[in-house]
């Protein structure tokens, strides 16, 4: 029996929760351009490690909110509980995140690639903004800066590879 600390309600027993399986699976938004095999990776393949596992849980009989859990599948030790949309911080959980095959799966790479497209659009928007009047320019700069702040909380790997991929860290 697990004692799970819900980030919103505190420690509760396992029977109040539902387990949602593997966390951090990006939906490939390019269904038409990836193969059936690559889509099967997203739809059916789930990581099944013996050891550290990052999974989603939901406090079904409480606040009904989702959150992420880093748990060992042999000892059942929960080493970290962290919010949806964020990444684990504990060393063992970080290793589990980075070493998962899913980080280099075609579906996820396709998701990263599709994330890059809006980045191009943003650059185009910047150029367009440069042509506009000074007042409009300042407003546009502010908007861009705001967006950039939003992006700092996204995935580590994504941050180095692509500037805009907040969606990956779900």
């Amino acid at each position: 029996m697990l004692l799970i600390t819900c980030p919103h309600c505190g420690p509760r027993e396992e029977s109040e929760f539902a387990c949602g399986g593997e966390a951090h699976i990006a939906r490939p938004l390019v269904e038409n351009s990836i193969t059936d095999a690559e889509f099967a990776d997203y739809l059916f393949l789930r990581d099944n490690p013996k050891g550290m596992f990052l999974e989603r849980w939901r406090h079904t009989a409480g606040c009904r909110r989702w959150f992420n859990v880093a748990r060992d599948t042999v000892s059942h030790d929960i080493i970290e509980i962290y919010a949806m949309g964020s990444l684990p911080r504990k060393a063992a959980a970080k290793v589990a995140y980075d070493n998962s095959w899913r980080r280099s799966s075609p579906a996820e790479l396709a998701a990263v690639a599709s994330d890059k497209k809006p980045a191009k659009k943003k650059a185009a928007a910047k150029k367009a903004a440069a042509k506009k009047t000074a007042g409009e320019k300042a407003a546009a700069k502010k908007a861009v800066a705001k967006k950039a702040v939003g992006k700092t909380t996204t995935s580590r790997k994504a941050a180095t590879k692509s500037p805009a991929s907040g969606r990956r860290a779900k």
Binding site: M1, L2, E14, C19, K50, F53, T73, V74, S75
Partner: peptide, 13 residues
Amino acid sequence: DKYNSYAQRGSFP
């Protein structure tokens, strides 16, 4: 049981 495990034991509920 509802979650993945390699521990050869389940939970009581």
